[in-house]
Design a protein around this nucleic acid. Structure first.
Length: 274
DNA sequence: CCCCAGGTGTCAG
DNA sequence: CTGACACATGGG
């Protein structure tokens, strides 16, 4: 058990905003499984209290505690809306997820509800992850999922996404798709690689780039973001129908700048609540 | 029984 | 190149 002093950090907002799927809150205590280890976390004012075998450097990295939020807020605060959202959700941080878990999680997200996504991921971990004590399970490695039969996967209730998960698991396990190499590429290069995966389009690629590879210039446009961006910025955006979401992403990148990924998460959290 | 959900792949026109 | 539709599962 140890404490980390953290200005501009809000644990509740960070774990409730929809970027992660495996954290649960009981009372004021959050529990999650990250990189094969249980983390229990709670916050008291500017202190983050952690109970985990993972060390404080890992936690700092995971919660991006070295991000200079004053600088980031200054950068994305382009208008009254973002100013209000920064005040409302101050301390919401992006986290650094494991790329494999993040990729599979967001493949599961397509045309799905948050509730179903969480349930599917939870079942995948229970069925195919390793027991790490207290009834918690690690996220299954690609090598594990690569040898799973379609019929065994059905109990996880992924629907049509099941085959997509098994396919990329095999490719990663075989070494044919080097997921961890993507971190060394630029945002644009890595995005082009990700969308080659069956079941990964621009939106899911952007989620993986933002939540796992820390590409803060990524701006995933889903139905929530599309709705809220149309409402507030629609008149600035060109492009129609099928090109509309890419146009929104392009506008956001220019408008909010290189940290637009943070802006995206504040907008998304706002739309979740309303 | 209808519709929709952190989208994407596919297939006519 | 564009738009329509299917896709499994769960819930309103």
């Amino acid at each position: 058990m140890y404490r980390i002093t953290t200005p501009d950090f809000n644990l509740d907002h960070t774990l409730s905003c929809g970027q992660v799927f495996r954290w649960q809150k009981n009372g004021n205590l959050w529990t999650g499984v990250v990189n094969g280890a249980v983390i229990r976390a709670k916050q008291e004012r500017e202190e983050l209290i952690i109970d985990s075998i993972l060390d404080r450097n890992f936690i700092r990295e995971y919660f991006r505690l070295d991000d200079d939020m004053v600088k980031i807020y200054e950068s994305i605060n382009r208008d009254a809306l973002m100013d209000a959202l920064i005040r409302k959700y101050r301390g919401l941080r992006l986290v650094r997820q494991d790329p494999w878990e993040c990729l599979v999680s967001y493949i599961c997200s397509s045309n799905n509800t948050i509730r179903n996504i969480k349930n599917s991921i939870s079942r995948m971990c229970e069925c195919f992850g390793k027991e790490i004590g207290s009834g918690y399970y690690s996220f299954p490695e690609p090598e594990m999922l690569a040898v799973i039969e379609t019929c065994q996967m059905q109990q996880c209730r992924l629907g049509f996404r099941s085959s997509r998960v098994l396919e990329i698991a095999s490719r990663v396990a075989e070494g044919e798709f080097d997921l961890y190499r993507l971190g060394k590429l630029s945002y644009e290069e890595a995005r082009l690689e990700l969308v080659k995966i069956h079941g990964v389009g621009n939106k899911i690629a952007d989620c993986v780039l933002l939540f796992a590879f820390g590409k803060l210039e990524s701006f995933p446009v889903d139905t929530h973001i599309e709705k809220i961006m149309e409402l507030h910025y629609g008149r600035h955006i060109t492009g129609t129908k099928s090109k509309r979401k890419e146009a929104i992403a392009g506008f956001a990148r220019r408008y909010f700048g290189g940290y637009c990924g943070y802006a995206q998460e504040y907008l998304y959290f706002e739309d979740l609540g309303t």
